[in-house]
Amino acid sequence: MGHPRAAVKETVDDAVLIEQCRHGDREAFRGLFERYGDAVHSIAWHFSGDPAVAKDVTQQVFLKLFTVIGQYRGDSSFRTWLFRIVANACEDERRRRRRWLPFVDETLGAFGRVRQSQLSHSNRREVSDEVAAAIAELSPKLRLPIVLRYLEELSYDEIAEALGISMGTVASRLNRGHRALADRLGHLRDSIGWDA
């Protein structure tokens, strides 16, 4: 779950980078991209299921960040504040494109189908593909909370802040998301290596 860059703690370095970015420091901006670029891209990827859209959204988010970073006042977590921009960008892009590509085929195509000869590693990978596909079939409202919760490990509070919804709504959407996932992925319960 998660990835190395997303797991970077928000330390004083973040504050320094942000302050330097406010003064137009490109190296500091690159530093923020290196720290959060993969997380932003991953969220967009799992939300859209389309590598091209994920790339576009990532670019849009950092372009937006470059222009609005002066508005970040530090009274909330920078990561959550950034994810708010990501969530808005995902939603805007979804509306703009009106329809997203059918996720399942695209996802499996993007990751590549695993071969039977690739034993436990391949099984694990196939599971993650199937999970990604099942998440992509959720409605957009359920998809983002699930992605933020399980990919970025945000708390309910943080998800509420990132999506601009109440914690009650977060819990309700996660609940519905879990039910839908359990239904769609029921056949994986006995998958080889699943409980490993």
Partner: peptide, 25 residues
């Protein structure tokens, strides 16, 4: 059911930003 769904969702993998994105930005 919830635990199962949570564990399944935990299998989601990060997808690194492709090379060249920052240069485009």
């Amino acid at each position: 059911r919830i635990r199962f769904a949570a564990r399944a969702a935990g299998a989601l993998k990060a997808v690194a930003a492709p090379y060249g994105v920052f240069e485009n930005i």
